[in-house]
Design a protein around this nucleic acid. Structure first.
Lengths: 136, 136
DNA sequence: GTGTTTGCAAAGTGTTTGCAATTTA
DNA sequence: TAAATTGCAAACACTTTGCAAACAC
């Protein structure tokens, strides 16, 4: 992930006004490092960093960023929604404690994928490698 | 999926008393055909079939069946939990309308899967092929 | 009988929404 | 100033829980 373009301009070209809240949340997220997080985690982080954003705004902003292609959702379990700043094609390790770690897509190869049923096309392939602690 | 053994005995060997509710829900589920469903769908179906089970019991029973290895959960999106009577190793197509279709695991081959990080082992690999309708 | 299971309704969790107040351009 | 955005609190959808009554063995 990289942000050669200033956040302000990235938001503008996504049709999003660079409001204080969006700049604050975006500033926390688009640091150049890939991150996985939930809405709640980001909300806590923002408040700790001194940004007073409401939960509703965090959710709205995350969805707007996702729609704009700045974020991706990662489905891991039925409870909280996880977001990922890495929007490129890749997959995940899921540790028992909920930690997500990227697996580069190029690293793996999937053979024998049946073709999409008539009338549909493959939009995305998500591979989730669930890990368990080794007992001992 | 097969149930050579009577449901009553399958429940017993899973440590579950063969109560009226468990037998009713099990009877709907373990017909020999693989099914994908949510708790709500099963609840509706049970009531239509004339079995008066409560929502709480449907949830409890589904979790007990899952723990007993009679069912599997399929994570598809953040909202409802989906269950699958096919507990063998396999993957899924997900249609836009929420329909799940099995992909036999043997049909595909995943190459280059990185080894599990130190201290952990791969518990399961879930592959979800998200489909979109062809526009037109 | 004794411990398990059920079912109701209430509580819980994560997320979304309605709308007045605020902010942006 | 007009249109977009925010924030609160209430509403929501799905799921879990507490506990008394019902049931299985």
């Amino acid at each position: 992930m990289q942000q050669s373009t200033p956040l302000k301009d990235r938001l503008k070209s996504a049709g999003l006004r660079p409001t204080r809240q969006r700049l604050a949340l975006g500033g926390l997220l688009f640091t150049g490092l890939d991150r996985h997080f939930t809405a709640e985690q980001l909300h806590v982080e923002a408040r700790r960093a001194g940004f007073a954003v409401s939960v509703a705004t965090v959710y709205n902003t995350l969805h707007q960023f996702t729609r704009a292609g700045l974020l991706r959702e990662v489905v891991v379990d039925g409870s909280k929604t996880h977001f990922d700043t890495n929007t490129s094609n890749h997959h995940h390790f899921l540790f028992e404690d909920g930690l997500l770690v990227d697996i580069a897509a190029g690293q793996m190869q999937l053979l024998g994928l049946p073709e999409a049923p008539r009338g549909s096309l493959v939009k995305r392939v998500d591979i989730l490698v669930r890990l368990a602690k080794i007992e001992g």
